[in-house]
Nucleic acid binder design. Structure first.
Lengths: 205, 205
DNA sequence: CATCCATAGGAACAAATGTACTTTAATACA
DNA sequence: TGTATTAAAGTACATTTGTTCCTATGGATG
C-alpha cells in the first residue's frame, strides 16, 4: 500500500511512521517526541524513543541527535511521492517492483529561469501534448544550439506564440505541428524569436 | 523571479527567507533561530527574531509560538515556476499574457499517500499517456466511488498491473485501453484490485 | 546638532525537548 | 510454571531553544 515495504515494521512502528509522515506533510516540520506520545496515546516518551530507534535502524527516518524536532523521512525526497514501480499500458506483463526511486522534478528545475506555459489547441497532439497541458520550458540562449526536432515555443512577431517542432533547413526555419491537419510554417530566421525549448509536460486530470 | 513578489522584503529579510526555504527543502524540517543566526553571520538571536516577525507580518511564514523549530512556509508555491501565459499549439493566435499564475503541483500532493508509476507501453496513447511517462496516482479507498471513464491502475492477480480506463457495466468491470489495437478486458469485481486513480501526468524530454 | 527609529549585540530565563535510567507489566517460550 | 525478552510507565536531567530585556550603534530626518 505504501512506498516502503512495511512488512518489516511492527504495527506500532508503522502507525507512528504513518502519523509522522502525515504530520510533516501538514505542518512542514517535524513533530516532537511528546507530540508523538500523545498521538500514539502513550503516557511516557520512552516507547516513542524506542520506536524511533527502530525506524532509524530500518532506514525509514533519521534525525540530528540532541536537537529538537529534526526528524527526516529518509526515503522521501523532493515531493514525497514514491515511485512504486512500473505499470503496463500495453499488455498485462508488468507488476509493481521494488524500485526505490522517487518522483523528482528537481532536475528539470535545475535549469535557469524555467518558465511554464499552458497549451491551447491540439496541433501537438501526436507528440502527446494536449489542450490544457502545461509545458515547462527553458529559455533558449543560443538559437544555433537547437537541434532539429526539438519542441520549442516560438514568437512570430505580429502573429503570436506557438509550440512546434523546430526544423532548420537551408537557412530557413520550419515550425512543424505534430498534427497532419496543420501545415508547416516556413520563416526566415529573422522573423522568429525562439523563446524556450521543451523540458517537460505536466497534466492534471 | 520567485513565487512571491519580493519587493516588500528588505534584502536581509529576503536572504533569510531564501535560506530558510533552502534549509527546509534539504532537511525537511525547520531550522532553529540560532542556526539562522549563524547562517546570517550574526552574533545574536535578536535580529533573526525581528526578521522572522516581519516575514510573519507580511505573510511569508508562520510558526507555533514557544515551540522549537516549528516554522512553516505559508505561501510556498512549490516550485516557483512562473506561468508566463498561454501558448498556441494550433494557429498563431495567442501570445504571452501577463497571467500571474504559478506552476503548482501542491494540489496534487495534497492527496494522501500519492504514489507514482512509470508507464510501459502505448495502450493509453490516445489519452496522451505515452511510453515512459510518469503518472501520479491517488490510492483508491472506495472502489464504488470510481466513475466510469476514470483512468486507473488495476492489479489483476497473477497477471500484473495495468493502466486503463475504468468502466463498470452490469456488475462487470471493463478495463479499456485508449488504443484501438487493444481489446477491452472484462473482469469480475473480485478478480481485480483497483490500486489508484490518475491525478496527473509528468513527462521529461 | 539633536532626535528618532531600526537594527545588532549581549545576557538571562523559562519552557520545550531529547535522552538516560529504573521499575513494572506483558508476552513468548521452553 | 519459570524465565527471558520486549514494551510501557515513570522519573530525572542536561541541552536546546524561543523569548524578553537592556544597551549600543548607525542612519535618516528635522
Amino acid at each position: 500500500m505504501d512506498a516502503i515495504s512495511d512488512d518489516k515494521l511492527t504495527d506500532a512502528q508503522n502507525e507512528l511512521y504513518q502519523w509522522i509522515k502525515d504530520y510533516m506533510r501538514e505542518f512542514q516540520h517535524s513533530p516532537s517526541i511528546r507530540q508523538m506520545m500523545q498521538a500514539m496515546r502513550l503516557k511516557s516518551p520512552a516507547p516513542i524513543q524506542s520506536r524511533l530507534k527502530h525506524l532509524q535502524d530500518k532506514g525509514y527516518i533519521k534525525w540530528q541527535e540532541g536537537k529538537a524536532r529534526t526528524l527526516q523521512i529518509v526515503e522521501e525526497i523532493i515531493d514525497g511521492i514514491p515511485i512504486l514501480g512500473s505499470v503496463a499500458a500495453g499488455g498485462l506483463i508488468e507488476t509493481y517492483s521494488d524500485v526505490k526511486e522517487n518522483f523528482d522534478i528537481s532536475d528539470v528545475l535545475k535549469h535557469k529561469d524555467v518558465f511554464a506555459l499552458t497549451v491551447n489547441g491540439d496541433s501537438m497532439i501526436d507528440a502527446c501534448i494536449a489542450d490544457g497541458d502545461m509545458v515547462l520550458m527553458a529559455p533558449i540562449t543560443d538559437a544555433n544550439s537547437i537541434r532539429n526536432g526539438t519542441i520549442v515555443s516560438a514568437l512570430v512577431p505580429g502573429l503570436g506564440t506557438t509550440l512546434k517542432y523546430f526544423i532548420k533547413k537551408s537557412n530557413n526555419i520550419f515550425l512543424e505541428a505534430a498534427n497532419p491537419n496543420y501545415d508547416p510554417i516556413e520563416l526566415n530566421p529573422e522573423e522568429v524569436v525562439l523563446q524556450g525549448k521543451l523540458l517537460a509536460v505536466w497534466r492534471k486530470v
